[in-house]
């Protein structure tokens, strides 16, 4: 029988806890762990079925045009061009804000709202590491929409050809553009999404703010570009997606027919500058917000 605990003397019983004394993963381990869990959050993995609807729905819709294009190519040959590498992201443009608005808040809002940041920062990872890991994870997740479908289209075009090696030779030149554009869209959009989300108190408000930015920017841009003149010149700069499209055209060429970039007379390098500016501004917001946060 164990003696009853008594007031006169204190005892600490050995109930067999083992302390871990082996090597620890350190900063790198912490960062990969955050990236891993954020990636899972971005796709609703390990969460309820309802939270998978939007991310996976967006991914499926984003891939769909590539499948259709490949199917058309297989059935009808090269007569019909459904979509091209250059216009692909512009065509699925409305899916990007939806994915971003739904998933960016998942990664950052609740950590702030429920005051769990000190738990992260008491590990061997700095505040900057945390922000960087979240940004990396969301960028990787965005690639599922900005890169994967276009790569699929690429693979389909090559494999559907009679002469696979020859087709590969024809298409391989597009590959740097595909990858470069996909990565650029992913990183810039992820930064914007996180920057807005980290300022919001609730996930729903963050989602509303992200959507508002793209909806309003898109509507204003569409109206202004129809007005013509100077207003059509500035129209692309109301919407991050049009700015990215302009930067893509500057870097890799090829224009999307419905994009306001086409009717604007602004020199293309300006779009590159504006893209860098968006990235810098978003990073600055993230940096300042997480440096000042007292948890």
């Amino acid at each position: 029988m164990t003696a009853p605990p008594d007031a006169a003397s204190g005892t600490i019983y050995d109930i067999g806890y083992r302390h871990y004394t082996g090597p620890r993963l350190g900063r790198r381990g912490a960062i990969t762990a955050v990236i891993g869990s954020a990636l899972r959050a971005a796709f609703g993995l390990g969460r309820s079925g309802r939270s998978k609807i939007i991310p996976w729905g967006a991914v499926i819709l984003a891939v769909l045009p590539a499948f259709v294009a490949i199917a058309v190519r297989v059935l009808a040959g090269e007569i019909l061009e459904v979509t091209t590498y250059e216009t692909y992201l512009w065509d699925i443009g409305s899916l990007l804000p939806i994915f971003l608005a739904a998933q960016a808040p998942e990664l950052v809002v609740n950590d702030i709202r429920h005051h769990v940041l000190p738990l992260y920062f008491s590990r061997p990872m700095s505040r900057l590491d945390y922000v960087g890991a979240k940004l990396a994870a969301l960028s990787l997740a965005m690639l599922a929409l900005t890169l994967a479908p276009v790569l699929l289209l690429f693979a389909g075009k090559v494999l559907a050809a009679q002469d696979v090696v020859g087709a590969l030779g024809d298409e391989i030149g597009s590959l740097p553009g595909i990858v470069g554009n996909g990565v650029m869209h992913a990183v810039v959009l992820a930064a914007i999404g996180l920057a807005i989300s980290c300022l919001a108190g609730r996930r729903a408000y963050a989602a509303g703010a992200v959507l508002a930015l793209f909806l309003i920017g898109g509507v204003i841009g569409a109206i202004l570009s129809e007005v013509g003149g100077t207003l059509a010149d500035i129209a692309p700069f109301t919407n991050p997606l049009t700015i990215l499209d302009g930067a893509r055209e500057w870097l890799f060429g090829g224009s999307a027919p419905e994009s306001p970039v086409g009717v604007s007379n602004v020199p293309l390098p300006i779009y590159g500058l504006a893209t860098l500016l968006m990235l810098a501004l978003s990073s600055a917001i993230l940096f300042v917000r997480y440096r000042r946060i007292t948890a």
Binding site: A102, R203, A204, Y205, A207, G208, L211, L215
Partner: peptide, 9 residues
């Protein structure tokens, strides 16, 4: 709010 936004968009 999310459902409402989804309805609108």
């Amino acid at each position: 709010l999310i459902v409402g936004l989804a309805y609108v968009v």
